[in-house]
Amino acid sequence: MEGLKMDFLSSKALEDKSSIEKVSMIIERVKDGDILVLEGSLTPSEEAELIETTMREIDIENFVGIDIHTLEKDEKSFFGFSKKKTIGLTIIGPANVMKTVKKRSNFLSMIAKIGDSGASVH
């Protein structure tokens, strides 16, 4: 069946996973063509690990890498002093599927491309 699969993962679902488990779970799904929407963000070292793993997994014909987009949210600190930007959502998908992404500070719109992407399994 052709179609676009999207997986939404709450921060709870990720919190007791190790970095390695998180990264391999993400890569596995993205290589299958899924788009992942995570609540929260990866740490910088997890991001680096994710890029490294992606590079190892790229196989020229079927998997050309990933696209990652994030949406920020303002988090007011307890006393309301500093407004810190934190990542609210992280969207990760196969680069040849996530085509057009329009992004403003609190809005993200994406067009996914299904079929004739060079990633089809035939």
Partner: peptide, 21 residues
Amino acid sequence: VATKVDYKNFLKYGLSEREAK
């Protein structure tokens, strides 16, 4: 550094398919 590398992007610079891959 990039999150994706698609050999097809190199073809438009005149590289052969083998060179691009």
